[in-house]
Write a protein that binds this DNA or RNA. Structure first.
Lengths: 109, 109
DNA sequence: ACTTTATATTTCTAATTGGTTATATAGCTA
DNA sequence: TAGCTATATAACCAATTAGAAATATAAAGT
């Protein structure tokens, strides 16, 4: 339903993913670390789950959430052509230089 | 006001940036290509401008918009630690293998 | 069975947002 | 100056959303 871009627009969801980079965590622990109410965290987890960014595993009453970085590749690949630009120091001013004869390829800033 | 993540959550704004990768364009041209009304496009352009993702230049009555990829670096750097994960074929199942002795480093899928 | 623990879901609300229509602004042209 | 062109802004609306509080579910412990 939601793609990775929309999901990551929410800072708390990025925070949750960051926390899960360290390994799987139960909901309660996430609640404690992000400082939201439990329902709020569960809601974010559902969004993350539906986007395929996390996975759950049950352990008694607890649910252990685990990171699934796969869908982030979509963002990465959208970003790819832009990465070239800023890596070359390409930004605003530099852009119209590309249409010039070509003497020095030196980056401006 | 808005960071790059929030700005990119909107597909039309990503589309506008994609169009500007080909060089600067006047608003009218963007309106034509994205198929929204002019005010809608101007609104998106304002958001992009305020996020530092585009820049305007005036040419008579027209405003030429130009890409400024710089702020996308924020996203790229947030993404960096995750990129390692999926590039290694790391996803869900593979994650708990990291805590194992270490024999074969072969990717699963 | 009852209680506690852990989590999900429901309901509600306030705020935000993408879009439209209408209007303003400003440069150009006749 | 009047009118046209290009764009921005304002006013408004419907839909979405993050969060809180309340409730449901379910597994464990007693």
């Amino acid at each position: 339903m939601a793609n990775a871009f929309e999901v990551l627009a929410e800072p708390r969801r990025r925070q949750i993913l960051d926390l899960l980079r360290g390994g799987e965590l139960p909901v309660g622990e996430l609640v404690h670390r992000v400082g939201l109410t439990q329902p709020a965290v569960s809601k974010h987890l559902r969004v993350l789950r539906e986007a395929g960014l996390v996975e759950v595993r049950q352990d008694a009453q607890r649910r252990l959430y685990r990171l699934r970085p796969g869908p982030l590749a979509e963002i990465d690949s959208w970003l790819a052509p832009y990465r070239l630009l800023w890596e070359q120091g390409f930004d605003s001013l530099a852009q119209h230089l590309s249409t010039m004869p070509d003497e020095q390829t030196g980056a401006e800033q």
